[in-house]
Design a protein around this nucleic acid. Structure first.
Length: 439
DNA sequence: AGGCTACCTAGA
DNA sequence: CTAGGTAGCC
């Protein structure tokens, strides 16, 4: 059970792919991450470009294990049953390699894209050193869709827990694996459940109890909508043997890869819990629509600070993302970055993630310590990466209080000071509705 | 037709 | 109070 398995190598530079960034930046939520045994030689190992982590993902019939060194991607695949022949072993290996190439889109030269973006955009140029190797994964559309339905109004940590909970509760156990360190409990692996399983009406109520909140109904309804769709016979035969074992609903979804972006988006947004943002994430991350830029508040901030997109006056501190504003931001960024705008967006987005605040600095080195830059080399912080140091909140007045004892309207001047010494003064018209607790 | 709001939950 | 939003209602 604890036999040491050798890893196979695919030559690959860190500038083409940074597993540490790509697998944790909120594209896929299902990878398990293990630090490799912290021994005394670890620091030197890191400097030698040896792997520091192992990443694992359960597919239909196997668990893929990945590590990364300075010059190679290291992989191995674990099956519940050992291969019966050398031919069988070879066939399995070939499939895994094909999957890796497809999933990481390794035929696309990321360095060349970085060069192009840097020429077109000085802002990108400033970030490219610190955030290299960030590319878009080519994910399974069904899993991608459900994961991003979970993502609404949510954080990466909880989304990951929810997605793993879906697997644990709705798909059969495949196998268990000890952490790579050898010590600790074996971890069970389940593949992602197919549409037919999540379409059952009881699923909604059970997902509620599992802590999915209002997304429980979205997931079940979307699954049901897809399963009950009337599929064209033509859509059930796709060229690749890649889709064998998939349900018609999954094949249909994947078939949107062959449609125009607008058409595919139209179809996606018909599904429950899928708005523009979620649809665009799916278009970009699993349906080959590389030009699509999903827009959220982070992306809007970036677009405002660096690319001259308007910032509506803050009513109540929150800027609602209207369809019009969404379109403005998306078009602007697509225009700046070109064909692969969605890919460029993910570099900027990752650089803006709080969990990556120290990525590429001394505090937290990227995998294997390459591309290491001192904090002085880091670009000017953008307003979104600027950390708030102090905020004086000056309540000016409270205009009315109605009979139900809700504060309905309040005006305040808010001063915020940032790490770099700059500060902003905003007039915030904050509408507070403080609901009285039921008694 | 845009502009609200409620919606689940875990964790600062 | 927020976290990579969306449906439903006016």
């Amino acid at each position: 059970m604890s036999t040491t398995i050798a890893f196979c190598k695919i030559p690959l530079s860190l500038s083409q792919l940074s597993l540490a960034a790509v697998l944790q930046c909120g594209q896929s939520f299902r990878w398990s991450i293990f630090p490799l045994a912290a021994s005394e030689g670890q620091e030197e190992a890191a400097q030698l470009g040896q792997p520091s982590h192992e990443y694992r993902l359960c597919l239909r019939d196997r668990v893929i294990c990945l590590r990364q060194s300075q010059e190679a991607l290291l992989w191995n695949a674990v099956f519940p049953n050992p291969p019966t022949s050398t031919e069988e072993t070879a066939r399995r290996d070939a499939e895994t390699i094909e999957w890796i190439n497809d999933y990481f889109q390794l035929d696309i030269d990321l360095q060349e894209l970085y060069r192009t973006w840097s020429e077109r955009d000085p802002i990108f140029n400033g970030l490219q050193e610190r955030f290299s190797g960030i590319r878009i994964l080519r994910q399974d559309p069904w899993e991608n869709l459900i994961s991003f339905i979970c993502s609404s109004n949510n954080n990466i940590s909880r989304i990951s827990k929810m997605v793993k909970s879906l697997c644990a509760n709705y798909s059969p156990f495949l196998l268990a694996l000890l952490p790579p360190s050898g010590s600790g409990e074996p971890e069970p692996y389940h593949p992602f459940p197919p549409p037919s399983v999540l379409a059952a009406s009881e699923v909604a109520t059970k997902l509620r109890t599992l802590g999915f909140g209002y997304r429980a109904d979205f997931i079940q309804k979307t699954a049901k909508m897809l399963v009950e769709r009337n599929f064209e016979p033509s859509s059930s035969k796709l060229p690749s043997a890649f889709y064998v074992g998939q349900e018609p609903a999954e094949v249909w979804l994947a078939g949107l890869r062959n449609e125009q972006t607008a058409v595919a988006r139209e179809e996606l947004t018909k599904l429950m819990g899928v708005g523009r943002k979620v649809a665009d994430c799916v278009l970009l991350m699993s349906l080959d629509k590389r030009e699509v830029v999903p827009v959220d508040t982070h992306v809007h901030q970036i677009a405002h600070k660096h690319y001259g997109v308007k910032m509506p006056s803050a009513k109540g501190g929150k800027i609602p993302m209207t369809p019009k504003l969404y379109e403005e931001v998306a078009t602007k960024l697509a225009d700046v970055w070109g064909d692969y705008a969605g890919w460029a967006h993910s570099v900027l987005f990752t650089s803006d993630l709080k969990s990556f605040a120290d990525y590429g600095t001394e505090k937290q080195t990227p995998v294997n310590g390459t591309g290491l830059l001192t904090p002085e080399d880091t670009p000017e912080p953008t307003p979104t990466t600027k950390r708030k140091r102090g905020g004086a909140k000056v309540e000016v007045k409270v205009e009315t209080t109605d009979s139900s004892q809700q504060i309905v309207f309040a005006t305040a001047i808010v001063e915020e000071t940032y790490d770099d010494g700059s500060s902003t003064l905003t007039l915030a018209e904050r509408v507070k509705r403080r609901r009285r607790t039921k008694t």
